[in-house]
Nucleic acid binder design. Structure first.
Lengths: 222, 222
DNA sequence: GCGGGCGGTTAAGGTTCCCTGAAGCCGCTT
DNA sequence: AAGCGGCTTCAGGGAACCTTAACCGCCCGC
């Protein structure tokens, strides 16, 4: 995945610098502006993946910016503001903002909310465990770029094990959560499906992905 | 557009009732639950458009619910909580929540944030997915310059799938969002319409545009 | 009103794919 | 070496899906 670009508009230069550094540390490319007008035109030129916007800019109102940004496509906007006032919040959210944080806020929370917005656009919460990638929105599994095709049950089972990589899931748990019922004690259906999953992963180059815990169940290598 | 359905899980019955009424007044269809487990299974059955979830439920942890909900597709989740603690916020947002409100909150803000989540990602903008072009303003579809004519339902269905190309839409979701009602379980209308769309696209040179996901639904190749 | 065309739905039959149970083998463990 | 648990293979049955065709209702022009 290419590095995401974030554009910040914030007239308080100290905060601007702080946020820039934090976002860069988090692996984003940052475009920082302390003026509303220049930030706005920069959005057009560079079309970033996300915009963080401080309200109460001297040269242009937040309303106006949000309105204009709406027109430039679907870029998510997170609003920052000094005034924690409900009316403003509702107004801005309805005007097209995607999220809203009142100062003072924690940088970690901003980062988390940034990730939420970017996640939406990239469709789904793809989960990566080593070379294994699971994309629930597309219902697809990859072993390092190569797609591995699974049957419904196989996918469900693998996805279930990926819930907590490393943790051992007992047969009972698996039966209950993947099959939704207790299977006859003599059945070895789970084994068969595990074997099939292993086989398909092996074909794609994945070895030892699922660990057997004798007498208990299975676990995904974390 | 059909009315959006919102599922609430909240153990405080007073708040539950209050929110339900507010949301219904705002024109939503509300499914209310005061137990985590029952709410969770209801999500699977009714596949609502959005879930509002109170943390600190007695019978199941919020983490667990968020984790499981992620598995059921891309339904947006808004978390409510009594404890306004940054760690929890960040944790939940990273766990798959789309928004987070600390109690006490203003109902207007919740409504605004609900609307943000439900806001159409694909506005009236013509979108291109590979060789496929959809122009909502004219209600026309093209396969690389050549127009393909679709009946109203066919168009609605294709347009809906194009909402998030690549993402798998379940039969339930399709029924609810394209037909606006639950179809009799034996019906295969969706299949037939998919077949017709495929046939028309094939005539225009488009192959493998719609992917079948066995046991779940369909997705547009992105 | 009447007939034709169009689109939506239903139903039946065919096809594909997957689940699963059985049977035998392998390899630990005691 | 015996026994248990896990692994592998494979074929039968069935579910899910696809296709085709007919039916029905609606709208339109005549």
């Amino acid at each position: 995945m290419s590095t995401k670009r974030i554009l910040i508009v914030e007239d308080d230069v100290d905060i601007l610098r702080l946020l820039s550094r934090e976002l860069e540390d988090a692996g984003f490319e940052v475009l920082a502006f302390d003026s509303g007008m220049r930030g706005l035109s920069a959005v057009r030129e560079s079309s970033p993946d996300l915009v963080i916007l401080d309200l109460g800019l001297p040269d242009i109102s937040g309303q106006e910016i949000a309105r204009r940004l709406r027109h430039t496509g679907n870029i998510p906007i997170i609003i920052l503001t000094a005034a924690d006032e409900v009316g403003t919040k509702v107004e801005m959210l309805n005007a097209g903002a995607d999220d809203y944080l009142a100062k003072p806020f924690h940088v970690e929370e901003l980062l988390a909310r940034v990730n939420v917005q970017l996640r939406k656009r990239t469709l789904g919460v793809t989960q990566k465990i080593g070379d294994l990638t699971i994309d629930p929105a597309r219902r697809q599994v990859f072993w390092s770029a190569e797609e591995v095709r699974f049957s419904p049950r196989e996918y469900e089972l693998l996805h279930y094990l990926a819930g907590q990589p490393g943790r051992v899931y007992s047969r009972k748990e698996i039966e209950h959560n993947v099959w939704g019922e207790e299977l006859p004690p003599s059945s070895n259906v789970v084994d068969v499906h595990i074997a099939n999953i292993r086989s398909k992963l092996r074909d794609a180059g994945g070895f030892g992905v699922i660990r057997t815990v004798r007498g208990v169940g299975y676990a995904l290598k974390s």
